[in-house]
Each structure stands twice: as C-alpha cells, then as structure tokens.
Design a binder for these strands. Structure first.
Lengths: 137, 137
DNA sequence: TTGAATGCAAAAAATTTGCATATTG
DNA sequence: CAATATGCAAATTTTTTGCATTCAA
C-alpha cells in the first residue's frame, strides 16, 4: 500500500486520497469500467469523486504501470490492478458471460509469435470472444 | 456480390445501395472504424452517407454474419468483412503498429480452452497487445 | 512554497434514436 | 402495397478540457 505512494512519488506524482480510493475500488472489484469505479468509490462512504478525476487518476496510474485496461466487450474499457491475477477472459458472444482461464493457457501461443515475429505479447487480461459451453448446446 | 443480396433477403432484409457501398468500402480498406467507412464511402464519388446509416448498416450486416468487429485499440471498433483473411492482430503498445499473424498460430490455444472449458473461441481478428520487435530493442 | 491534482462546468466525441419520407421486394 | 431503410436532427453516452482552488510533498 505504501508502495503505491512510493511509485507515484518516484515519478513526481502524488498519492491523493482519491487515487488511493480508486485503487481500493479496483482491488475490490477486480475489473471495472471508469463508471463502475466511480460508483464503487462513491459507495465507500466517502464523498463521491467526479468522473473526470477518475479518468485522470486511472490514466496516471496506468502510465506508471499500476493499473491497465482491456476491452472486454463493445464499448467499455475495463481497468484492473496490474497485480491482479493474470488471466485471459473468455467472452461469450451469445450470453455475454465472462469466464476466465489462467494466462498460462496461452504460453505456447505467446512463444510462437515471439519466435516468428519477435513480438512480446502480453496476454494478461486479453479478451477472447466466442461461445461458452452452455450456449453451444 | 449478388450473394450479398441473397443473404440479406433470406432474412427479410434489403440490399440498398448504401449497404452495398459499405461492403465495398470494407473490401477496399480491410479494417475500418465506422468513421473511416463513412469517409471511404463518401470518397467513392457518390453522395455521402450519414453516420447513422453506416452504424445501422454495419449492425445489420454484422447480425447476418457478413461483417464483424473487434477492438484493436483504445476507443475504436474496427469492422471487417467476415470473409476477410483470418488473422490475429498484434498491437504494439509502444508505437501503435498493428501487425498480423495467421489465426492458425492460435490453434493450440483454442484447442486448449475448448478442452478445459468447452468454450468455442473465435480468434479471428483477435487483438493481442504487447511490444513489437522494433520497440523491444 | 509550488507544482500536481481536484472539482465543476462546459466542450468534444462517439453512438443511438425518433420520425417523416423514400425504397426495396 | 407493406415493411424495411434512409436522412436529418435531436438526444444520449462517454471522455476530454479549461481553470480557479486545494493540497501533497
């Protein structure tokens, strides 16, 4: 936790209560859109934080590698703590359900494109679309 | 081409000149955002087509499986013809470059999650983020 | 102190929707 | 002719920006 302050300060940034709350919200939610983060932050009892601050906070934290985001579905960037367990998201195109599988399932795939293209893939929180088991039947 | 009309009619939809131009635009561009499609459609000499029609057209075509979309970067759904060569996009987080590798590179990966979760992944045009060869050095 | 961050409010983008009119099948 | 699509304009939604004020370091 104090680590957060360290990372920010090391880059001339500051740890404000708002940012601390953004991180806490993400820790509790796992994944969340800026909107959802705002809602969660507002739900912790304290004063609500304007969306603009949420956006700027997430942006600052992402620049420092504390959080990152992916696009699980249509229009919604979902943020998560970088430390959050690495996994790939399986997004069902039919029912919308989102399942997860450990990122290790893609190890081979990652190695392959690294070898063939020199591309260092980061499959953490990668979104894979398709149809889930239930919807297939 | 006439096939397009068939698919639409088979579902009670209609082939309008606008939709034909949308498909032509995609064929020429490969991938494109709704905005880019509109620009291309407008560049073909004919009258410009309002964005709302582009959106509705893409939606209708996607529902019939003629086109589909993915999110390559931050805020931009990119559409492409379903028939367009299957490949996975390698999006460089550093320079923004987008490279492609055949979808077959993910065969093993797809098989794995199918076996473990019964999830039928469609990696066509899947976006994989990371750092490209040049930016790594 | 002093520059970074917040809060608001207003501006931009990006989509979506209502509806009268035009068109396709 | 009947139902689907288009065009436009207006309404939403989502994200960004300007700025005076507050606050962390």
């Amino acid at each position: 936790m104090t680590d957060l302050a360290t990372v920010l300060r090391a880059n001339g940034r500051r740890l404000t209560p708002q940012r601390r709350r953004i991180v806490e919200a993400l820790a509790g939610l796992g994944h969340a859109t800026p909107d959802a983060v705002a809602a969660q932050v507002g739900a912790d009892g304290g004063a609500s934080v304007p969306l603009s601050t949420i956006y700027r906070g997430l942006e600052a934290l992402e620049a420092l590698g504390v959080v990152s985001h992916t696009h699980l579905d249509h229009r919604a960037p979902t943020y998560h703590l970088t430390g959050h367990a690495d996994h790939v998201h399986l997004v069902c195109r039919a029912c919308g359900r989102i399942d997860e599988v450990p990122a290790s399932a893609a190890t081979e795939f990652v190695a392959q494109i690294s070898a063939s293209r020199g591309f260092a893939a980061d499959v953490t929180h990668m979104a894979v679309h398709g149809v889930c088991a239930e919807c297939r039947s």
